[in-house]
């Protein structure tokens, strides 16, 4: 159970960063931290004690394998995370060129 609580703590660390940081890049990093805490949880869900990696070896008879489905899910989610992070970075750099700063307090066009 401890590992799940640690995942949750990591999630909260990301959320704290998302709320308190004022720098665009740091906000993106906080989002990534939250993402990876969830990936960690997904992998842990599929873990089975003493399980082998889920590749069928014709030479070996029946074994206990870990659940491969969460791993496939995490791989796909990592790809999606890559796309989201790349988009965030592109927008952040564009914003930097407009405002000459990464500080979110300087960007007030849409306040209210």
């Amino acid at each position: 159970m401890t590992v799940y609580i640690l995942c949750f703590v990591l999630f909260l660390v990301g959320l704290y960063g998302l709320i308190t940081r004022r720098n665009l890049i740091k906000i993106a990093i906080s989002l990534s931290i939250m993402e990876f805490s969830i990936f960690l949880m997904l992998v842990l869900i599929g873990y089975i004690d003493n399980g082998l990696m889920p590749i069928v070896d014709p030479g070996l008879s029946a074994q206990v394998y870990v659940d491969p489905l969460p791993q496939a899910m995490v791989l796909t989610a990592i790809v999606i995370g890559l796309a989201t992070t790349a988009m965030l970075m592109a927008i952040a750099i564009r914003l930097y060129r407009k405002y000459k700063t990464f500080d979110i307090r300087e960007m007030k066009n849409l306040r209210g």
């Binding site: 790809v79 890559l82 790349a86 970075m89 592109a90 060129r97």
Partner: peptide
Amino acid sequence: EVAGAILTIFLALVIFKEES
């Protein structure tokens, strides 16, 4: 596809840097 995509993202960021 993945190699092309990551390279495209990297090059686009380099172009941003050069221009700014």
